[in-house]
C-alpha cells in the first residue's frame, strides 16, 4: 500500500445527519446519525434487514437518500453516483462484492481507474496487483484468470484489495470476512488496524462480535433502520444483543443465563 497519510487523527471525516431512505413503502433507514473520524474504526451492527447495507450503499453513492445530509471533511456533499463517492475518497467493499466475472483479477482491481486510459499499462497494473494481494497475504494463484474461477474467499480478497487501490480516506467493508478462512480473517483484521493507523476512517459491518470487539473503536447499532445506541468495545455481550434485538429478554440472553446457571450448579 502506498498512498497518502490522510487526515490528522481525530478529524471528522464523515458526518451523517438525519439520513432516511425509503424503497417505496419500506423505510429502510430513518433519521440515521453517524460520525466517522480519521483513524477510527466504527463497527456497524444490527440484525438481518436492519439497514446496514443500505446505509453503506447510500454512502457509496449507489442509492440516493430520501432525506438528510452527508458531510465529508467538513463540506456538505452530494453522493449522486458511485464515481462521486470514489472521487471523494470513499471506497467500499460491497456485501455482494460487485466484481465482473468475465474479467481477470487485474482488470477487476483497476476497473474504472485503469492506468493510462488510451494505452492500458498492463505490466504496471499487474505488478501493482501482485503487491497489493501480497500485502493481504492473498492466496490467488494467477491474476490473469477470470474472476469466475476464484473461490468465494479469493473474490472477497480481490474486492478488499480493490477498495485500497485508490488510497481512500474512508473505507467501508460490508461483511468482509463472511467468506474468509481463519488466517485470512485475521489478515483482514490486521489490515483494518493498519489502515486505521494510517489515519483512514473505517466502517466495518460484521455479525461476528468477536471480530467487532477486536478492531472497533465504537460500535454503532442499527435496528429496523434506526440508530439504536452507540457502544464501546468493552460493552457486555448482553447489552449489545439487547440493543441489536431490541429486547432485554431474548433467545441469546436466555441461552446465556441458562449456561451461567449450569456453570454455577
Amino acid at each position: 500500500m502506498s498512498g497518502n497519510e490522510t487526515g490528522r487523527a481525530g478529524e471528522r471525516l464523515l458526518s451523517l445527519r438525519g439520513i432516511s431512505k425509503k424503497f417505496g413503502a419500506v423505510s429502510a433507514l430513518t433519521d440515521i446519525e453517524l460520525d466517522v473520524h480519521a483513524g477510527e474504526v466504527v463497527a456497524l451492527v444490527g440484525d438481518n434487514g436492519a439497514g446496514k447495507s443500505t446505509l453503506v450503499k447510500v454512502l457509496a453513492g449507489v442509492h440516493q437518500p430520501t432525506a438528510g445530509t452527508v458531510e465529508f471533511m467538513g463540506r456538505e456533499v452530494t453522493l449522486d453516483s458511485p464515481a462521486a463517492a470514489l472521487n471523494l475518497g470513499i471506497a467500499t467493499v460491497f456485501q455482494d462484492l460487485a466484481l465482473c466475472e468475465n474479467l481477470d483479477v487485474v482488470a477487476n482491481l483497476f476497473l474504472g481507474h485503469e492506468m493510462n486510459p488510451w494505452q492500458l499499462d498492463e505490466v504496471q497494473m499487474e505488478v501493482r496487483a501482485w503487491t497489493l494481494l501480497r500485502e493481504l497475504a492473498a492466496r490467488i494463484p494467477s491474476v490473469r484468470e477470470p474472476v469466475a474461477s476464484l473461490s468465494g474467499g479469493q473474490r472477497q480478497t480481490v474486492a478488499i484489495a480493490r477498495s485500497l487501490l485508490l488510497s481512500p480516506k474512508v473505507i467501508m467493508l460490508d461483511e468482509p470476512t463472511a467468506a474468509l478462512g481463519v488466517a485470512q480473517t485475521a489478515e483482514v483484521l490486521n489490515l483494518i488496524e493498519r489502515v486505521r493507523d494510517r489515519g483512514l476512517g473505517v466502517i466495518i459491518i460484521s455479525h461476528n462480535m468477536e471480530d467487532v470487539r477486536a478492531v472497533a473503536d465504537r460500535i454503532v447499532v442499527l435496528r429496523l433502520g434506526r440508530n439504536n445506541g452507540v457502544f464501546t468495545p468493552d460493552a457486555s455481550n448482553h447489552e449489545l444483543v439487547a440493543a441489536i434485538t431490541g429486547a432485554t429478554e431474548n433467545a441469546v440472553s436466555r441461552r446465556e443465563s441458562r449456561k451461567a446457571a449450569e456453570v454455577t450448579e
Partner: peptide, 23 residues
C-alpha cells in the same frame, strides 16, 4: 487496450458492478 474497451467488457459482464466501480 483502452479504458473504454475495458468498460465495455465490464458493463456487458456485470452492469451493476461496473457502475459501482465508477464507470
Amino acid at each position: 487496450r483502452t479504458k473504454w474497451g475495458r468498460s465495455l467488457f465490464a458493463v456487458g459482464g456485470n452492469r451493476e458492478a461496473a457502475r459501482r466501480s465508477g464507470i
